[in-house]
């Protein structure tokens, strides 16, 4: 907890508050409510935070970010923003669904953006990501880099959302190598699972030991342990949510990005332009809401040949030629 660490937020928000007191210019105000794991999770929440920072810089809006201390705090935090007459409240993560629903009713003129769940309210824009499509893509990539035919998956908490990642990934792997073997581990059944890098490292080392060449990790902050293990064993890992290629260059094959940052940025932009539209938006490969990350850090790992194959698969998914299995749907059938 390095609270004395220099944080851009502190400066920006103090500037903002200072202006709030002295200047009544009607500027767009955006409040961001993050999950417990907070803006330093190098993953989902971090991505939302970056999106908002970009909006602040490029669109000149004012922002304030808060991190919830517990799962009962979402409602009061959103509510405080609403009472302070913020123009848009961004709520990140499915945990905030109930709170957004209640507040959307209580403040019918207040605009909300909810990420990862569908609030079904007239003043809420809900964005859900087709994680299974992105996972399918990195699954295919993983299979291309697994000469042994063994690949791994490490999930955080065993919840339906992560099962969705797993199912898409597995299908992608099987598409490239139908005989491939998948090793699956979950880190736990409590919230601690998102924040347990040592345990993730243990599991990753174990999977590498058992012959896995690539491990896809969907476990929030715990993913760091998997990257460490990949470096130690000179194997490969695939990150999640944000672009995590930079964390261990050369050992992170790619990252399955949920472009939460884009969603946040675009929604703020809509607000700014007066074009906010409520309702559910599903973003998948087609709208580039999910994607695999390609940058200078994994340039050499992902070959031109790989890229060609991946683009072909992407085209097939978008055209509907490939049907990616969705855990949510299969769960409801059960």
């Amino acid at each position: 907890m390095n609270i004395f660490k220099y944080r851009p937020l502190v400066m920006v928000s103090s500037v903002f508050l200072g202006m709030l007191l002295t200047d009544a210019r009607a500027e767009l105000k955006v409040g961001l409510v993050l999950e417990k794991s907070g803006k330093d999770d190098k993953s989902f929440n971090a991505s939302a935070y970056q999106g908002l920072k970009r909006a602040e810089k490029e669109l000149g809006v004012m922002t304030k970010t808060v991190e919830a201390p517990d799962n009962s705090a979402y409602e009061s935090l959103q509510r405080a923003f609403a009472e302070k007459k913020f123009d848009l409240i961004v709520a990140i993560g499915f945990h905030q669904l109930e709170a957004v629903k209640k507040n959307a009713e209580r403040f019918p003129d207040q605009k909300f953006l909810l990420v990862d769940e569908d609030a079904k309210k007239p003043n809420v824009r809900s964005v859900m990501f087709e994680e299974h499509e992105g996972s399918y893509l990195v699954g295919a990539l993983a299979a291309m880099h697994a000469p042994s035919g063994k690949v791994g998956f490490i999930g955080g908490m065993d919840v339906p959302l992560i099962r969705r990642f797993q199912m898409g990934y597995e299908a992608g792997v099987k598409k490239v190598n139908p005989k491939a073997q998948l090793i699956v581990n979950y880190l736990g059944v409590t919230g601690e699972a998102w924040n347990n890098p040592p345990k993730a490292k243990e599991q990753a080392l174990d999977q590498f030991q058992r012959g896995a060449d690539v491990i896809y990790v969907a476990a929030g902050n715990s993913g760091m342990g998997v990257f460490d293990a990949a470096e130690a064993k000179k194997k490969l890992a695939i990150g999640v949510d944000s672009n995590q290629n930079w964390i261990k260059p050369g050992y992170v094959l790619s990252s399955m990005m949920k472009r939460v940052d884009d969603s946040v940025f675009e929604t703020v932009k809509m607000m700014k332009d007066g074009k906010f539209t409520p309702g559910l938006v599903r973003v998948g490969l087609k709208s580039k809401g999910v994607d695999y990350a390609l940058d200078q850090h994994n340039d050499k790992l992902v070959t031109a040949d790989d890229r060609k194959k991946l683009e072909a698969i992407r085209a097939d998914i978008i055209s509907g030629k490939i049907k990616v299995p969705d855990y949510y749907i299969s769960m409801k059938k059960k």
Binding site: R7, V10, S14, L17
Partner: peptide, 10 residues
């Protein structure tokens, strides 16, 4: 966290 500039949740 919400009301002040410097006091974060931590």
């Amino acid at each position: 966290d919400l009301e002040t500039d410097k006091v974060t949740r931590d």
